[in-house]
Structures are given as C-alpha cells and as structure tokens.
Nucleic acid binder design. Structure first.
Length: 510
RNA sequence: GCCCCCAUCGUCUAGAGGACUAGGACUCAGGCCUUUCAAGCCUGCAACAGGGGUUCGAAUCCCCUUGGGGGUACCA
C-alpha cells in the first residue's frame, strides 16, 4: 500500500469492446500506464467482452489504436500474449464457470431461475411501493429438491452471489480511504449469466487475482459495486488489490459524465472520442501532457512537461478524487505550444495528411514548388490544431483566376480610396516583376521604400497586396507568401486584382 | 426514492492547522510589439458553497445543510 514507486506493480486497462474509445477510458489507461512505468511494473491490456449483445468488432481496433496514438504500450495483452494468457475474457469462460460453481458449493452463491420478465415486474412493484429496487432473493432459499426439479426441467438460470444479510462491508479506496457499507444495501448480484458468460463482478475479480493485479484503476462509476467485489474476493479467499477509483470526467458544461454521445454545450460541439482528437489535429504529446494534468497535477508551477518527467513524478495517491470537466481551451493552448516546439520538418510531416485530405491534393502536389517549406514555418505560430493549417494555406494552391476579389474592402488599403489602391497594386506588380533576388526580405525592403515614396503607411500598402495575393483579409505574413507563390503567379494575381478594382470604381464613377 | 462519492477563481489546479493580503495555468479584458492574424512580453478581473463546532489559530479537522456527481440491469 505504501508504494511510492519502489515496488513494481501490475496494473491493467480492461475496457469492454462496445464502441469507440473515449477520453475517459484513455485517461484511465494513461494513469495505469504512468503507474506501471513509474514503478517499473507491468501494464496489461485485457478485453472484457462478456456482453455478447453489445459487442462491437470494430471497437477493438479503436482501443488499440487509441492507446498507441497516445504512446501507451502494454506489456501483456491479447495481441502479444503473456504469462497469463488469454487476455480476452470470452476465451476464459470455463474459468469463471468453475469459480461460480465453486462458490455455490461454498454457500456463497446460488442458482436463480427468475426470468427477466419476473424481475422486471418485481422492480416495477418495488418502484410503485416507493421502495429501493433490487432482487428480492426469492431463489436464495430454494430447497435441493426445488432446484433439482427446475434443473431437470431444463429451466435457464443465472448464478447470483449471496451477500451477507447483516453487518457491514468495509473496503479501502486509495484516494478516499476506508468506506463502509451496510450489507442491507447490497444486492445478490448476478455473477454468471444465463448464457454462461460471467458478469463483470465475477470475471474482473477472477482475472485480477489470476493475473496478479496489484492495483485496480477504474472509473468512479464502479465505486458503488466495490463492496460486492470485496465480498466476492473474500469468498474466494483472495486478497483485494488496491482499489483506485478515478474521478469521472464531466461534460464541459460540468453537468453529467462525459459520454460518447455527441452533445452540444453552449451551442458548440465538443470532442469526446479519441479518434476525434486525433483527426482534429491534436498532437499525442500535447494530449498526453494535457490528460496527465486532469485529475493529477505534475507541478503547480509547471504546466508543460515531458513523458519522462511525468513518469518520474507520478504518484497514484496524489490523484484528486473529485470529478473534473476537461478544460478544452487549455488543450488548444497546449497543443499550440507543442506545435510551435516542432521542427518545421516535423510539422510538415504532421501536416501533410491533413492538407492532403482537406485540400484534396496529393503529397506531391503539395510539395511542388517548395511552397510549404516557406509557408509552414510562418503559420507554425498561428495554428493550434493541425486541421487549421488548410485554411491558412489554401490560397497558395489555387490558380490565380480562382481567387475571389468580390469584396472591394479586400483590395482597398486603410485610409485609401479605390483609385489609389489600384494604383498601388499596379506599382506593386511592377516592383515584383523586377525585384532581385525574389526573396521575402528584399521584397519587403522594396515595398517599404515604395510605401514611403508614395507617402502611405506600410500597412495601407500591404493590405491590398495581401488581398490580391491570398484573397483574404487575414493571411500568413505577406512577403513569405509572395515568395512562396513565385514571381509570375504573384504578379499575375496583383494585376488581376488591380484590373478588377479599376473596373469597380470606374462603374461607381460613371 | 434509496445507497455511495465529491466540494478552492468560469475551467484545470496548488494548498495535507499558523509561511494565505489563498499561488499557478487556461479563458477573458487592457497595454506593448506589429504588414493582417498570431506568437511573445507586461498588467488586470476572478475562488476557499453556507452554517455550526474543535483550536490560541481553519481553505485545511468534525457535524449539519446545500450543491454536484455516480450507482440502483442476465451493461461494463
């Protein structure tokens, strides 16, 4: 218990393959992984697929992909095996069945022949009477003869765990301390279903024991069933692993557990699934950093840290037991920070798939002319997510006649009129046609000199040029943009813009 | 309804009886810088849910209230 990281632990992430991995699950896995790495222990992946109805074959891929994306590698698992294989519960069915039968022998469990319909009407009655719902244990005291009779008739049955009717059950939670629950509030939970599959209550306890798990990290939603788990483990004569119930992650609204379901909060859609964060262009390192600081705190005065630093400092018992909403704005800020820390080459590599997908261009097309090599370094400090790059760069991959100059404001400089702006555009085109060398620095020098010559502010001159080059009010820095475009294309765009502007004010004047 | 858990700025958090005029970060506001937008730097706004105790002393310990969350399935 008093493990500060000196004793190797065995922890497991045990998701059930019922859908896409979401951030809450990933965070649990992250803390598992952190603790395993911190203690030089093992991180185990176990698949809890005991619910055949909810099984989703695609979720397995989502699970492993999500873990790998964040950089969480496991030491034992379905794909790589290990000393306690198999790591898929549906392949361990016999083990649970035997244990359930054994518990019956020991008097800790019993067969229940109640049908789902019977149970449903029982619950309805309980609700109507304003009583707590829960199995009324009508099969708990069946005589041997009664049981035999039903068995002979081939009636389907489940196996329920028989909790003590009186007294209290006490267990420990690492973050909350000792928790005592009155046994009268406990239910005779099903441990083996009619289809022969175990429920979580049995399967997880059996596997945690067999796989020698030392610390169980799981969501807080399991806290209320922990007494049952304690009872089952006791009945089996085993030791309870250290229980660590992680606080749930709340909706951004702070109301309710974050779900996989898309919800709108304050009119904005927020991300919840791991693959959504990936395709929005959050960097794994940033996400790792971010997630580590929700529910745990690396250092009150240091927001940014590496994986190694986190491993070095991580302490299970420092986890904050209160539920938290994800600070999405902080994620954006952090991700921007990580993007800025990338080398241009690394950023380009990360960006290529996004640009390709969003702009509909091949890598080769994107690389042509070396535009990205000039432009990426200058948009680096302007994007917080990888998926924002496309709108910063799209203009550079358009033909000059595809640029839209419909908005006259785009081409008119601050405190200038249309005529003057058009004149400046012509001058700019002329200048670009002859400037040597054609580099951002020299272009800038010439343009500044020209602005002075005309007695206009640099910004007033650059505005129309920016509009002509990019078709946008807001664009990457002008002179790198011009350089990236190349002399011919740049001149063409400015001339076309000038013509359009001239037409427009000619119309107005006549 | 019943059971369990939780409670510091809007959000993520630091704080484990005196070092707290409650610290950091994000967001927001203002300023500087500036070719747009960013980035960067500086400044500012902003919290111990309420009430009782315990103590010389409480954000820190106890109780109650309130609020929030979780559970209440042949789901995990």
């Amino acid at each position: 218990m008093t493990n500060n990281g000196d004793t190797p632990v065995r922890v497991r992430f045990a998701p059930s393959p019922t859908g896409q991995l979401h951030l809450g699950g990933l965070r649990t896995a992250l803390f598992d992984w952190l603790w395993a790495r911190r203690t030089n222990g093992q991180f185990i992946l176990r698949i809890e697929d005991t619910d055949r109805r909810r099984f989703d074959p695609e979720s397995l891929e989502s699970l492993t992909r999500g873990l790998k994306w964040l950089g969480l590698d496991w030491d034992e698992g379905p794909d790589i095996g290990g000393p306690f294989a198999p790591y898929v519960q549906s392949e361990r069915q016999e083990i649970y069945r035997e244990k359930a039968l054994e518990l019956i022998e020991l008097g800790h469990a019993y067969r229940c022949f109640c049908t789902p319909e019977q149970l449903e009407s029982m619950r309805n009655e309980q609700r109507r009477a304003g009583k707590p719902t829960g199995y009324d244990r009508r099969c708990r005291n069946l005589t041997d003869d009664e049981i035999k009779e039903r068995l002979d008739k081939g009636l389907p049955y489940v196996i329920r765990f028989a909790v003590p009717l009186e007294g209290v059950t006490v267990f420990d939670d690492l973050l909350r301390g000792e928790i005592a629950v009155d046994n009268r509030d406990l239910r005779d939970e099903i441990i083996l279903k009619a289809d022969g599959m175990p429920t979580y209550h049995l399967a997880a306890m059996v596997d945690d024991h067999l796989m020698q798990i030392t610390h169980v990290l799981r969501g807080e939603e399991w806290l209320s069933t922990a007494p049952i788990h304690k009872r089952i483990v006791d009945a089996c004569g085993w030791d309870m692993p250290v229980l660590v119930h992680l606080p749930v992650i709340l909706d951004p609204s702070g109301k309710g557990k974050m779900s996989k379901r898309k919800k709108q909060v304050a009119g904005k859609e927020f991300l919840a699934l791991v693959h959504e964060f990936e395709s929005a262009g959050y960097l794994p390192d940033a996400m790792f950093n971010f997630l580590t600081n929700v529910g745990w705190n690396y250092d009150p005065d240091q927001e940014v840290f590496s994986r190694e630093e986190a491993i070095d400092k991580f302490q299970l018992n420092e986890i904050n037991p209160s539920a938290a909403a994800l600070p999405y704005e902080k994620l954006d800020w952090l991700n921007g920070l990580y993007i800025r820390s990338l080398t241009p080459a690394a950023l380009k590599a990360a960006l290529l798939p996004f640009l390709s997908r969003q702009l509909g261009l091949s890598f080769a097309e994107l690389n042509a002319g070396g535009k990205l090599d000039i432009l990426i370094p200058v948009i680096q400090e302007r994007i917080k997510r990888l998926d924002e790059a496309a709108s910063w760069l799209d203009w550079a991959f358009l033909d000059s006649n595809q640029i839209c100059y419909d908005n006259p404001k785009l081409l008119i400089g601050r405190k200038l009129d249309a005529a003057k702006s058009a004149e400046l555009l012509r001058e700019g085109a002329l200048l670009l046609g002859r400037v040597q060398p054609f580099s951002g620095d020299t272009i800038q020098e010439e343009f500044r000199a020209k602005a002075e010559e005309f007695g206009v502010k640099a910004g007033s001159f650059f505005g129309p040029i920016r509009g002509a080059i990019s078709g946008k009010k807001v664009s990457p820095p002008l002179f790198e943009s011009i350089e990236a475009l190349g002399r011919e294309e740049a001149v063409q765009r400015i001339e076309r813009a000038a013509s359009i502007l001239e037409e427009q004010f000619a119309e107005v004047e006549t």
